[in-house]
Amino acid sequence: MCPIITHEDEIELASTEKDLVNHIKKLAKAQSNLIGAQNKYAEALRKANLEREMLNRTFRDVLKQMQTLMREKRSNIKEEEVNLFQDIIYKNDEYIEANNKYIDAIKNLTVKKDYFIKKKEELANSLDEVAGKRGALIKKALNVEKAKNKLIEGEKLKILDSELNDYQREFDRARDVLLKKIHQFIEVRDEIDELWIHLKNSISKSS
């Protein structure tokens, strides 16, 4: 047997929606702080990568000098040294390229996540609007019901019904906006999921 749905249930729903709004906004704030941390991390990686590029440039200068001196028998340069330096330079080039891809992936993700937070806030604001309109609509419906029970004049009842219809239309408009915001939220969320996969795939060996 299905439970009887009452006005109190709808009022409770409006109250719970308000709670949901608060939690959405708290999560958005926490994620905003996380984006800031991720951007700082990406910037630190970028600076480290620039230092690695400078290091590799100097490695190449040293290698070039070693290769020149190695032509002389008394240069004290061993072929093993040259080969080891070449290997270090080659690996550094790989690390630089890998880090650049990783940094780009982080940046792309944080930009989209920042946009996602805006969509999340828009959703929260729309939900807040719906909750408010829902509560107002239910209270108005209860007032109209009480008026009908008191058998008030027909003209006054028409006015109340007209006002109730206005409340209903306002609620319907707010709900339509909310549905639109939810669809936008889901669309951006799915795009972020793809960017997370791209970030994961961009991770490579790097020391």
Rank of each mutant, 00 (worst) to 15 (best):
Asn49Val: 06
Arg52Gly: 02
Glu53Leu: 04
Asn56Ser: 06
Arg57Cys: 08
Arg60Ile: 13
Asp61Met: 14
Val62Thr: 11
Leu63Trp: 05
Lys64Leu: 12
Met70Lys: 10
Met70Gly: 09
Met70Pro: 00
Arg71Ser: 10
Glu72Ser: 15
Asn76Trp: 04
Lys78Phe: 13
Lys78Asn: 13
Glu80Trp: 09
Glu80Ser: 13
Glu80Tyr: 11
Asp87Met: 07
Ile88Cys: 03
Ile89Thr: 03
Lys91Phe: 05
Asp93Leu: 12
Asp93Glu: 14
Glu97Tyr: 02
Asn99Leu: 01
Asn100Glu: 05
Lys101Gln: 02
Lys101Ala: 01
Ala105Leu: 01
Ile106Cys: 04
Lys107Ser: 00
Asn108Glu: 03
Leu109Glu: 02
Lys112Ile: 00
Lys113Ala: 04
Tyr115Trp: 05
Ile117Leu: 05
Lys118Pro: 06
Glu122Asp: 15
Leu123Tyr: 15
Asn125Arg: 12
Ser126Tyr: 04
Ser126Thr: 11
Leu127Asp: 12
Leu127Arg: 10
Leu127Ser: 09
Asp128Trp: 08
Asp128Leu: 13
Glu129Phe: 04
Ala131Tyr: 06
Ala131Ile: 06
Gly132Asn: 09
Gly132Cys: 03
Arg134Asn: 09
Ile138Ser: 07
Lys139Ser: 08
Leu142Tyr: 08
Glu145Arg: 14
Ala147Thr: 08
Ala147Trp: 04
Ala147Gln: 06
Lys148Thr: 05
Ile152Leu: 03
Glu153Ser: 02
Leu160Ala: 01
Asp161Met: 02
Ser162Gly: 01
Ser162Glu: 02
Tyr167Asp: 06
Tyr167Ser: 05
Gln168Asp: 02
Asp172His: 02
Arg173Val: 04
Arg173Tyr: 07
Arg173Gln: 04
Ala174Glu: 01
Arg175Asp: 10
Arg175Ser: 12
Asp176Val: 04
Asp176Thr: 08
Val177Pro: 02
Leu178Phe: 10
Leu178His: 12
Leu179Tyr: 12
Ile182Arg: 08
His183Tyr: 09
His183Leu: 13
Gln184Cys: 06
Gln184Leu: 12
Phe185Cys: 10
Ile186Arg: 12
Glu187Phe: 09
Val188Ile: 15
Arg189Pro: 00
Arg189Ala: 15
Asp190Thr: 15
Asp190Asn: 14
